[in-house]
Amino acid sequence: MIHLQNVSKTYHSKSGNVDAVKDVNLDIDKGEIFGIIGYSGAGKSSLIRLLNGLELPTEGIVEVAGNRINEVSNAKLRKARQEISMIFQHFNLLWSRTVRQNIMFPLEIAGVPTSKRRERANELIKLVGLEGKENAYPSQLSGGQKQRVGIARALANDPKVLLCDEATSALDPQTTDSILELLADINKRLGLTIVLITHEMHVIRKICHRVAVMENGRIVEEGEVLRVFRQPKEEMTKRFVKQLAEPEEAKETIEHVLERVKEGQVVRLSFIGDSAEQPLITEIIRSFNVDVNILQGKISQTQEGAFGTLFIHINGEETEVEKAIAYIQSKQVEIEVMTHV
Results as ranks from 00 to 15, higher is better:
Gly297Glu: 02
Lys30Met: 11
Phe91Val: 03
Ile103Cys: 03
Gly144Ala: 03
Glu318Gln: 15
Val24Glu: 05
Ser169Tyr: 09
Leu94Val: 12
Glu222Phe: 09
Ile204Asn: 03
Lys9Trp: 01
Ser169Val: 11
Lys251Val: 14
Glu83Met: 12
Leu258Glu: 15
Glu131Arg: 01
Ile2Gly: 03
Ala42Met: 08
Lys323Val: 05
Ala276Trp: 00
Met338Phe: 15
Leu155Val: 09
Gln140Ala: 14
Pro113Lys: 09
Leu280Asn: 01
Pro173Lys: 02
Leu141Glu: 00
Gln243Gly: 08
Glu108His: 11
Glu108Thr: 10
Met201Asp: 04
Met86Leu: 12
Glu222Ile: 11
Arg286Lys: 15
Arg97Lys: 13
Arg218Thr: 08
Asp158Pro: 04
Glu181Cys: 06
Arg239Gly: 11
Cys164Glu: 05
Ile272Met: 10
Arg81His: 03
Leu310Asp: 05
Ser287His: 13
Arg120Phe: 01
Gln243Asp: 14
Val292Asp: 09
Val99Ile: 05
Ala184Cys: 13
Lys133Ser: 06
Thr168Arg: 07
Ser142Ile: 10
Gly66Ser: 13
Asn102Gly: 05
Met86Asp: 08
Tyr137Ala: 07
Arg268Val: 09
Lys206Asp: 04
Asp165Val: 04
Phe105Met: 06
Ser15Cys: 09
Ile325Leu: 15
Leu93Gln: 00
Leu4Glu: 02
Ile125Trp: 05
Gly66Arg: 02
Leu155Met: 07
Leu4Phe: 02
Arg120Lys: 00
Val228Met: 06
Asp27Cys: 05
Val213Arg: 03
Asn289Pro: 07
Ile186Lys: 00
Glu108Phe: 09
Phe240Gly: 01
His12Gln: 14
Ile312Lys: 05
Gly60Val: 00
Leu192Val: 04
Glu252Trp: 13
Leu94Ile: 11
Ala245Cys: 09
Leu107His: 00
Val21Cys: 02
Leu4Ile: 03
Lys22Leu: 04
Val261Ser: 06
Ile61Gly: 03
Val292Gly: 09
Glu304Gln: 13
Lys238Arg: 10
Ala154Val: 04
Ile37Gly: 00
Ala110Pro: 02
Pro173Gly: 08
Gln147Phe: 04
Phe240Lys: 09
Ala324His: 04
Leu244Gln: 12
Asp185Asn: 14
Val220Gly: 05
Thr198Phe: 04
Arg120Pro: 00
Gly308Asp: 04
Ala75Met: 09
Leu130Phe: 00
Gly31His: 12
Glu166Trp: 11
Lys238Ser: 12
Gly150Trp: 00
Ala20Arg: 04
Ile294Glu: 07
Phe91Pro: 00
Ile179His: 00
Leu310Gln: 05
Ala324Asn: 04
Lys79Ala: 14
His340Ser: 13
His340Met: 14
Val341His: 15
Arg153Tyr: 07
Ile294Met: 09
Glu181Val: 07
Leu226Thr: 11
Glu215Trp: 08
Leu26Asp: 01
Gly273Glu: 06
Ser40Tyr: 12
Lys76Arg: 14
Ser142Phe: 10
Glu334His: 12
His313Phe: 11
Leu162Gly: 08
Gly38Gln: 01
Cys208Arg: 05
Ser270Thr: 14
Asp165Glu: 05
Gly111Pro: 08
Pro232Thr: 08
Ile204Gly: 01
